[in-house]
Deep mutational scan, measured.
Amino acid sequence: DYFTVDMEKGAKGFGFSIRGGREYKMDLYVLRLAEDGPAIRNGRMRVGDQIIEINGESTRDMTHARAIELIKSGGRRVRLLLKR
């Protein structure tokens, strides 16, 4: 199942961390959800969800650093296409 999650940044960021990336020879996944962060309050994202797109850009062969950069580059908002 594919689904989109739109979030607005909180005081401590978006409230999730990721693992994976090209340099680890793996796809990008949601690693952790911060307690009471925007990701957990949104209610749609879960640990283990695969991140397919960040702000419309495919994560295929994307490095971990580039993924972080893209998440931050959207300013106060981020849109993720996830797969569960």
Rank of each mutant, 00 (worst) to 15 (best):
Y2A: 04
I18E: 01
R46K: 15
Y2G: 03
D6H: 05
R22K: 15
M45V: 11
R41Y: 07
R44N: 14
K83G: 15
Y24R: 14
A67C: 09
G56K: 06
G20L: 01
F14H: 05
M7F: 03
A39S: 09
K72T: 10
G37F: 06
K83L: 14
R76N: 10
R19K: 06
A34K: 10
R44V: 14
A67F: 05
R66Y: 07
A11K: 15
R60A: 11
G13M: 02
K72R: 12
I54P: 00
I52W: 07
E8R: 07
L70G: 06
A39H: 05
K9Q: 09
R44E: 15
T63F: 11
M7D: 02
R22N: 11
A34T: 09
G48L: 04
N55W: 04
L82V: 08
M7H: 03
A11Q: 15
G21W: 01
Q50R: 13
E23R: 03
I71C: 09
V30T: 03
G21T: 02
G21S: 03
R77I: 11
F3D: 03
D1Q: 15
G74A: 14
D6R: 06
A11E: 07
D6Y: 05
G43D: 13
L33K: 03
G10V: 04
I71Q: 04
A34L: 13
L28S: 01
P38N: 10
K83F: 15
H64Q: 09
V5H: 02
M45H: 00
K12P: 06
S58V: 09
I54V: 09
G74Q: 08
N42I: 09
V5D: 03
I51A: 01
R76P: 13
R44G: 12
D61F: 08
N42S: 10
A34C: 15
D61S: 10
V5M: 04
R60H: 08
M45L: 13
E53R: 08
G15V: 01
L80T: 01
A65E: 12
K72E: 13
M26W: 03
R41D: 15
T59L: 02
A39N: 06
A11S: 14
D1N: 12
V5G: 01
R22W: 04
G21L: 01
I54Y: 00
R44I: 11
R77T: 13
L80E: 01
G75R: 10
S73G: 13
A39Y: 04
D1W: 06
R32E: 15
P38K: 09
F16P: 00
M26G: 12
E53D: 07
E69P: 01
L82K: 01
Y2W: 15
I40Q: 13
G13H: 04
G21Q: 02
G43L: 04
E35C: 10
T63E: 10
A11I: 15
E53N: 09
L31M: 14
R22F: 08
L28M: 10
D49G: 00
N42G: 11
Y2T: 06
D49Y: 01
G43N: 05
R76E: 13
A11W: 08
A39K: 04
R32T: 14
G74R: 12
G74I: 04
R76L: 13
I51K: 00
R66H: 09
K12Y: 12
R79N: 08
G43Y: 07
L28W: 03
R44P: 05
G21E: 02
D27E: 11
I18F: 09
L31C: 15
M45Q: 02
S58A: 12
G43R: 09
E23K: 04
G15M: 01
G21K: 02
I52S: 08
V47K: 14
G56N: 12
K9F: 03
T59Q: 01
T4G: 06
G43S: 14
V30R: 00
Y2N: 15
V47D: 15
R60K: 08
V30F: 02
K12D: 08
K25Q: 10
G15A: 02
E69R: 05
L82H: 00
V30P: 00
L31F: 10
K25D: 10
A67W: 02
D27Y: 05
L81A: 11
L80V: 09
L82Q: 00
S58M: 07
M45D: 01
K72H: 07
K83S: 15
I52D: 05
M26H: 11
L31I: 14
P38T: 09
E8L: 05
T4P: 06
L82W: 00
P38M: 07
P38I: 12
E57P: 00
D61K: 08
A67L: 02
E69D: 09
D61R: 08
E23Q: 04
K83V: 09
D61T: 08
D36V: 06
L33E: 02
R77D: 06
Q50Y: 08
R46W: 08
A39P: 07
A11G: 10
F3Y: 04
M62P: 00
I40K: 10
T63N: 08
D6E: 15
A34H: 14
K12N: 12
I54L: 07
L33I: 15
G56I: 00
P38R: 06
M45S: 02
S17K: 11
M7S: 01
E35A: 13
T63L: 09
